[in-house]
């Protein structure tokens, strides 16, 4: 017994180190293995509050670009209103949204990371505004990411610049599907993989969200094809896609609350159970 105590006293530093190392490694592994089980996130009271304070100051620096983006969007919406005779364009616009206006929540980005492999965005609206995990986040130019965690006032978003994110997308012209991933290299480009060789792809074609996922409505812009590769192992196309969004400079975003999703999920679950 004495010897055990002696051992513990003699190696107290090493034991403390090992204990703390286990805790931190556990947190690391947990955050890597499954993004739902993340314990430590910036959607909490402390860091959310600090980021909101910082953003209150720094948003003044971006007022000009933010205004320009809003003016552009206004112009686009006005052109739709004034050209109502062109019924084709109006229909197309309504289809792009595909959701009720009341299902869209406007929110502000208070923290945005884009320099690591797993990037997250923090927004200043949370479960009090009806935000739930797995809702889609877009802005006027294209998609941003998917809501990960929520607290009463804040929420974190898995950015499309996250090597773990995987979003269903398609080529607008031909309706061929693929999954959108990020290889962790450049903030301006993402990759569309597993596009069948049958698809006709050309540089400059537009990529939009596909209808297979219930998170995003169909036909929301993502980017244009920049480069085309053929994967040697699988013989599928891999496309480099230039994003419409500048992910390093985000202001206001829209969160899509889709009521259909729960219904669809329930249906799929019931089908599986039977």
């Amino acid at each position: 017994m004495q010897q055990i105590f002696n051992f513990i006293f003699k190696n107290s530093n090493r034991l403390l180190f090992l204990l703390l190392l286990c805790v931190s490694l556990l947190l690391t592994i947990q955050s890597h293995s499954f993004h739902k089980s993340r314990i430590i996130s910036s959607a909490n009271f402390l860091s959310g509050g600090v980021y909101e304070r910082i953003n209150n100051i720094s948003e003044y620096l971006n007022l000009k670009t933010e205004n320009e983006a809003l003016a552009l969007e206004n112009a686009r919406l006005k052109s739709i209103v004034f050209n109502t005779k062109d019924t084709l364009a109006l229909q197309k616009f309504e289809k792009i949204k595909g959701v009720d206006p009341k299902d869209i929540v406007v929110s502000k980005v208070i923290h945005n990371s884009y320099n690591v492999h797993e990037n997250f965005i923090t927004l200043n609206s949370g479960s009090l505004q009806g935000i739930k995990p797995d809702m889609g986040v877009i802005n006027s130019l294209g998609i941003i990411g998917i809501v990960d965690k929520t607290s009463p006032k804040y929420s974190t978003v898995v950015s499309i610049l996250n090597v773990k994110s995987q979003i269903n997308a398609k080529i607008k012209k031909s309706n061929h599907f693929g999954s959108l991933i990020w290889n962790g290299k450049s903030t301006g480009f993402v990759q569309l993989v597993d596009v069948p060789r049958l698809a006709s792809v050309r540089k400059g074609d537009t990529i939009v969200t596909g209808g297979q996922s219930v998170i995003f409505p169909e036909n929301i812009n993502i980017g244009t094809i920049h480069k085309v590769y053929i994967d040697n192992k699988t013989n599928y196309y891999t496309l480099d896609i230039k994003l419409f969004n500048d992910m390093t400079n985000l202001g206001h975003v829209y969160i899509i609350k889709s009521e259909d999703r729960e219904e669809l999920n329930n249906l799929e679950k019931r089908t599986k159970d039977e």
Partner: peptide, 27 residues
């Protein structure tokens, strides 16, 4: 050891990174 662990954990909270800063600081 305890202080560096806390230092890392606080960095992790602010950068959404699980426990990587804590592990690095501890090492």
């Amino acid at each position: 050891l305890v202080a560096s662990f806390l230092l890392g954990i606080i960095m992790d909270v602010f950068s959404n990174s699980g426990g990587i800063h804590a592990t690095a600081c501890l090492t």
